[in-house]
Design a protein around this nucleic acid. Structure first.
Lengths: 221, 221
DNA sequence: ATCAAGTCTGAAACTTGTTCTAGATTAGCG
DNA sequence: CGCTAATCTAGAACAAGTTTCAGACTTGAT
């Protein structure tokens, strides 16, 4: 078919550099199918249930093609996480947190995200395990996830879009620490070593760091 | 059976419940050999270099036996970490940190541990990856590692042995958050996404939480 | 000394992630 | 339209974790 001719890139290699070349419609559709199958398998069964052969089959793609799009299972799951995170960010944007202080708002946002994850614990398992198991070859993708998470947190602090105040180095470090806590607390919850209540407490605890690093009074509404 | 009377346990199943039954000398020796081989392979090559067949061969044990002692690669590496942590705790005990505040002492202790890990980055990689990748079947062992880490931190705060003050719930939460940060920061460093300096800053940042939760003035020397 | 139960060994088999190959399709282009 | 390069497919092949099995060896008890 002479169809979807134009927009095409001969040398499209979806895997290597992130969006190195624009994809044709069919390629975009394949990519979507793959991510969908991945999320679906992950949602019931977690990390182990995402088997590359099954993903390939259920997204109607040859195994080799799957590997061309996502060079490893971890790459695939991290990409799945990116996908879900975008959703989440969009959702959160619509209903911003209402707390008085920045710390409260961040905690509120993270708890909201946590509740979303609780609805699909297996999916959460697959994504988080992939994220922390990722080695250097996945760094760019993991970094992207990290930036996205940072953006969500800064947003909820009120430092997101307006471009008003640049966050101070102390604040950035606090945000990194919050992310660390967030990931690690999720892991302890997923592996059954911490209760939901404990995760909540830890998140609230770490969020207090924010007020501690507030350069002036910007944390207050 | 009135059997397995004395020191020996006929029914010794090293794997299942942690130290369910005492091991014979030869079993103890096997266990040591295995852990040693594991650490050695990990030290050069990290997680991937610890291949079960190689561990078995280089510890002079059949593959099946290796699996009887450690039911999975992750179990093996987590046990390796327990082993190393004991070392570390012993070493740290000898030279307690000297900082003025509890926060300083904890940060000092963690940075010392971090420096030790930097000497064997591959080993650190293997252990930390195993730890965060562990699923529920490894929970007891991972929990043990966590308790050991908590003990080290409480020790350096000055709440360890004396039995003087029980830590408050807030302090325990702060310690948990510190552990979260510690693990997660290690991961970002190991995967090349954060510099040593950044890890240092994050540790110092999170340790400030301690002074924040100090019930009175006990943090001061 | 002998026995029963439990352990260890060596080797093969199975599983799932990853790689490779030959041939069919598709895309961009003159 | 017809060519060429890239992509996709089906399927075999390979690697490392894990399981399984028959037989040799140990251990503690009779």
């Amino acid at each position: 078919m002479a169809a979807d001719a134009k927009v095409e890139a001969r040398t499209a290699r979806p895997g290597s550099p992130p969006p190195s070349a624009p994809l044709t419609e069919r390629q975009e559709a394949r990519r979507r199918r793959i991510l969908h199958a991945s999320a679906q398998l992950a949602a019931r069964g977690g990390f182990d249930a995402v088997q590359m052969r099954e993903v390939a089959e259920s997204s109607q793609v040859a195994l080799g093609t799957l590997y061309r799009y996502f060079p490893s299972k971890v790459h695939l799951l991290v990409a799945t996480m990116q996908d879900q995170l975008e959703h989440m960010h969009g959702t959160l944007r619509k209903k911003p947190p209402t707390g008085e202080t920045a710390a409260e708002r961040v905690a509120e946002t993270l708890m909201r995200a946590f509740r979303a994850l609780q609805r699909e614990p297996h999916l959460a398992d697959a994504m988080v395990r992939a994220l922390t198991f990722a080695d250097r070859s996945v760094s760019p993708e993991v970094d992207q996830v990290s930036r996205q998470t940072t953006a969500i947190i800064l947003d909820s602090m009120g430092l997101g879009e307006p471009g008003a105040g640049h966050p101070t180095p102390e604040q950035l470090s606090a945000v990194r620490v919050i992310e660390h806590t967030w990931h690690s607390a999720l892991i302890t919850w997923l592996s059954g070593r911490a209760s939901i209540a404990q995760v909540k407490i830890d998140i609230e605890t770490v969020c207090r760091l924010i007020d501690l690093t507030d350069p002036s009074g910007t944390a207050e509404r």
